[in-house]
Computed example of a mutant assay.
Amino acid sequence: MESNDLKGKRVLVTGGTKGIGKAIADELAQAGAAVITSARTKSAEGTHHFIAADLTKADQVLALANEIENTFGGIDILINNVGGLTTPGGGHSTLTDAHWQQELDLNLISAIRLDRILLPKMIEQKSGVIIHISSVAGKQALWNLNMAYAVSKAALNSYSKALATELADKGVRVLTVSPGATKTEPMIRFLNDYSTSAGITPEEGMKQLMAQTGGIPIGRMAEPVEVAQLVHFLVSPSAAYLTGSIYAIDGGSLPVVS
């Protein structure tokens, strides 16, 4: 990728202070973009323009969009990265209405709200790219570990495809990136908690989890920067003909053709 191919582009990365989000923000800034990050709380390591926002709350989504409009006049690229697994495992009997709503608010509705409020300016300028960060769980749910999360990501995939079709002739591209196991703090924490509860080592826990999904043929988790590099390509001029597709970055773990 060219090191300056995003010069002059205004980018918002939600959940952009840690993990995959931070890697994306850093990667796109290095490519010349003016990067804005949002999260509930600011990280001490952040070097990009930061706006605090809880995107599960409609009023804070509106406040975020208003600050972006007043400070930057809009954005050119939106990375909907905020999300996560926040509900317990154990299957349907462990999940309450509140659990389902919590997961949908975080992983689906937050992106829908932000898209809706930022899209009019993109349509007006007849250009823009929206990336939804999903998960391979959206295509391969593990009932005992991530049922509500997987369902919310599957819904995000469907919404993203529909939105891409709607906007294709308006100059706005919409794409989905679905990481598999990625070496982030939440993933390491999840592995440690899972292993502790099972009375096994984190290495054994990783093997058990991977056995449920068929393993990772490449033999390791992804690094956040590898996801960021894929996102960089997809938002760049080199990907101008791409829209509506889901890109798994999973080391070959999804046992499906599509």
Rank of each mutant, 00 (worst) to 15 (best):
Q60E: 14
E204K: 12
S3E: 14
G8Y: 06
N70E: 15
A29V: 00
D105G: 08
K153D: 04
L167E: 02
L145S: 07
N4T: 13
V174T: 03
A111H: 13
M206E: 14
R10V: 14
Q102T: 13
L142D: 08
N66C: 10
T86N: 11
I133L: 09
K139I: 08
D54V: 10
Q212N: 14
L6C: 04
I249A: 10
T41I: 12
T37G: 01
G46M: 08
G199L: 02
Q212G: 07
N144D: 15
G15M: 03
V151D: 00
I216L: 12
Q30E: 15
M187H: 08
T86D: 10
E45Y: 08
H132T: 00
K121P: 00
P217I: 06
Q125E: 09
N144Y: 12
K57Q: 15
R220I: 10
E226H: 02
L78V: 02
G84P: 08
T17V: 12
K9S: 13
V35P: 04
S135K: 00
V136H: 03
G19Y: 04
H99C: 06
I123E: 14
G251F: 01
N80P: 01
N192P: 04
E124P: 04
A44R: 08
E2L: 15
I20N: 01
N157K: 06
V82M: 09
T56V: 11
S134E: 06
I218Y: 08
W143S: 15
P217L: 05
S127K: 13
I200S: 05
V256Q: 15
K170D: 04
P224T: 08
T17G: 07
D105Y: 09
I79T: 10
T184W: 00
S178D: 09
K9I: 06
A111S: 15
A98C: 02
G219A: 11
I133G: 02
